[in-house]
Design a protein around this nucleic acid. Sequence first.
DNA 1: AACGACACGTGAATC
DNA 2: TGATTCACGTGTCGT
Lengths: 220, 220
Amino acid sequence: MLSRRDTVARRTTRRWPASSKNGRAAAAASSSRSHTEAEKRRRDRINGHLLTLRKLVPKSDKMDKAALLARVIQHVKGLQGEAAEVGKALTVPTDVDEVRISTYAAAAESTSGSQTDIFMEASLCCEDRPELFAEIDQALQSLNLSTARVEMGSLGGRVRIILLLSGNGIRNDSCSSQNRMINLKGSLNVALNRIVNSTPSVSSYRVTSKRQRFFLPSDT
Amino acid sequence: MLSRRDTVARRTTRRWPASSKNGRAAAAASSSRSHTEAEKRRRDRINGHLLTLRKLVPKSDKMDKAALLARVIQHVKGLQGEAAEVGKALTVPTDVDEVRISTYAAAAESTSGSQTDIFMEASLCCEDRPELFAEIDQALQSLNLSTARVEMGSLGGRVRIILLLSGNGIRNDSCSSQNRMINLKGSLNVALNRIVNSTPSVSSYRVTSKRQRFFLPSDT
DNA sequence: AACGACACGTGAATC
DNA sequence: TGATTCACGTGTCGT
């Protein structure tokens, strides 16, 4: 459990046998001493870094040294995954039209047993236009999908919208849910692609400058 | 420099002196053996985790054990800082109303010399309501601020909006630009706070469910 | 030779 | 008590 003993000096750096006058034994003793001291410096260096890591990683106090390392790798993995996910899910639109749909199951630890809900994450990137949200809304409604969360970024007249969707009542305890999921995914894909690919060139709406048309007032 | 020797078994797990028939010595030897074996297992566990970390952290191969740990803490610090920064700029609304404005100068490397534009980043988090964007738009227009980029996140009926603003024609080559900047910052702050703090309770707009009102169609 | 890094076995301490 | 964790000193390999 690691109590004190990591800070306390358990033994006072060993008493060396007082360098004898004999040349041979003195040399050997000196060598051994420097060796021991160097080794201690090495250990202190490692343990110092270990301590830094312990302070850095939350809830890693009162932990085994090996367990600490395990927690560190878990933390690094988590942070790396998070960073990658943020990078992938970043709401900065690019110049290419894109629709990406990924399904995954998030295990929701509830009090009454663990239930696994099915979610879908849809990311679409296209030219911005006023009817965009309404069209997306309509598509989602027709597919009976509810939006758990939405994030949106806009830059240079283009938008990237990331939707976290959940199919109503679609759980993985149903045997046919997987098939429904695939169908849903396909349907959503074609619907969003249709929305993205509807070029606004025929629309009456026209961009004056290549930039600065972010705040399109609702109707005022 | 860490060559092989970490994978090679340098000595074959020590030959124990064949449990003697003496009860006392046999017990002591058995105890010592289990102790040694347990200690080896512990070392292997630690080194195993260390190896995992070495695989996890890039460019940490061919490194001292202590240096590896130093690199791990550096990596963790970097990832944590990155995550914190992302978290601060992330468009996930919280439960507290908030307005945050930060100004910074971004050096734009143009062909005709380097010109330094002044930007402001405004982050506001409040309850969502249909007139919100229009009010923000109006405030920005009255302050003659143009929006270079906007990011928005919505969750549970609340929104967090992050605006990257640039004052029109405000450059730092002007001697009075700094004062104008401060005034602008203050004005923007009071304007956004007024918008955020205007409670929608008196508004005719009312939320039915605590969730799922993300896609408010423009007017259809 | 001398120095640095590693694995090892052991004594002490904690649970 | 036995199991487990830690720091220590040492042997040994590679530079």
